[in-house]
């Protein structure tokens, strides 16, 4: 279930913590597996548990607590838009509305072609750059006016 490369990356994370504290690497391990597989299936969670010597339910508890883990399949591009107050004052909600209209989906929905999933996000710590959105948890896009949103969508083939 875990690729060789994922295992190596997880082992590098385990080495950051005291030898008897492998569990500390669980967040990173889940992020690594999600990055590779797109989402966290029950099998993936069990494989992480096995690799770290944890009970599967303890791994599931972590996976279901933190917002950036996906426990169901998402589109090829997951776009999370911050609509919290500081962003909303500078167009965060309007940017989300614009995306909904362009993609024809609401929050937590995926386009029929499986390309985009839209999510509503909480504060990303980038309020000065509003509107901000995060693509696949790793790419932060700042100052997303209609023109910038159009070109972002164009890039996501």
């Amino acid at each position: 279930m875990l690729s060789q490369e994922s295992r190596q990356q997880i082992d590098r994370e385990i080495a950051k913590y005291p030898a008897e504290q492998k569990q500390s690497a669980v967040m990173a391990a889940l992020a690594i597996v999600q990055m590779e597989q797109g989402w966290l299936s029950t099998e993936a969670i069990e494989a992480v548990a096995d690799h770290l010597g944890m009970a599967p339910v303890a791994v599931y508890e972590v996976a279901s607590f933190y917002n950036m883990y996906d426990l169901a399949p998402v589109g090829k591009y997951k776009i999370t838009v911050c609509t919290n107050l500081p962003c909303a004052l500078s167009g965060g909600v309007h940017a989300a509305d614009y995306l909904k209209q362009k993609l024809g989906v609401g929050f937590n929905e995926t386009t029929p072609d499986g390309r985009f999933t839209l999510k509503e996000g909480e504060c990303m710590g980038a309020c000065g750059d509003a509107p901000v959105m995060l693509v696949n948890n790793v790419r932060m896009c700042s100052f997303m006016q209609p023109e910038q949103i159009d070109s972002l969508l164009g890039e996501c083939k």
Binding site: K22, Q23, S24, M27, A28, F65, N67, E122
Partner: peptide, 24 residues
């Protein structure tokens, strides 16, 4: 240590729980 989306982990003891590999 990289967080993964939980405001509460800014609370110092939740943050410690999170580093320990638990929910924050």
């Amino acid at each position: 240590h990289h967080g993964y989306g939980a405001y509460i982990c800014g609370e110092e003891t939740a943050l410690l729980e999170s580093i320990e590999g638990k929910k924050g």
